[in-house]
């Protein structure tokens, strides 16, 4: 289990956390390369189906991160995201997915250090859950053409 490297899909809002990740780069703050980032205009754009889709396709974890409360570029998108997220969390738990696999955080575009620390923490936590076997990913190997 110790050499298990989880695959994580991250959804970052353009204005805050994506910016923090940019700044972490500028500041050369290392973190493990386990997640792939989908850039959204706002965490408010996060359709709960995206999370399910990521798990269905075999992601071991999902990380959603946006602006601090009150800092949303679109006034209240992160609040809407938070509501959906809480429901999503409960839903996943009730169907037997370890809630540690799904993380939500607030990181502003100036908080590169927080980003680095959170990235490591998210990866560690998901690692501790082991590979995601709840969803049968084998039968769902859709290619790009099928989605298109």
């Amino acid at each position: 289990m110790s050499d298990f490297e989880p695959k994580i899909v991250a959804f970052f809002c353009n204005w805050c956390t994506y910016g923090a990740a940019d700044l972490a780069g500028v500041s050369r703050l290392d973190y493990p390369p386990n997640f792939r980032v989908v850039r959204l205009p706002c965490t408010g754009r996060l359709n709960p189906k995206f999370i399910i889709e990521a798990f269905k396709r075999g992601a071991d974890g999902v990380w959603v991160s946006g602006c601090h409360p009150g800092d949303c570029h679109y006034i209240a998108g992160n609040y809407h995201a938070r509501r959906k997220f809480i429901l999503m969390h409960q839903l996943l738990e009730s169907i037997g997915v370890d809630p540690l696999r799904l993380r939500f955080s607030w990181i502003s575009s100036a908080e590169a250090n927080k980003f680095q620390a959170m990235a490591k923490d998210v990866i560690e936590n998901i690692k501790s859950c082991g590979p995601n076997t709840t969803f049968r990913k084998e039968s769902l190997k859709l290619g790009l053409a099928e989605v298109a």
Binding site: K7, V9, L40, P41, E53, G58, A59, G143, L144, V147
Partner: peptide, 18 residues
């Protein structure tokens, strides 16, 4: 649907990430 960030486009990104 949000143009430029459609469900189809984002699903495709998720699929490609994994």
């Amino acid at each position: 649907s949000l143009r430029g960030f459609t469900n189809a486009g984002l699903f495709a990104q998720i699929a490609a990430a994994l």
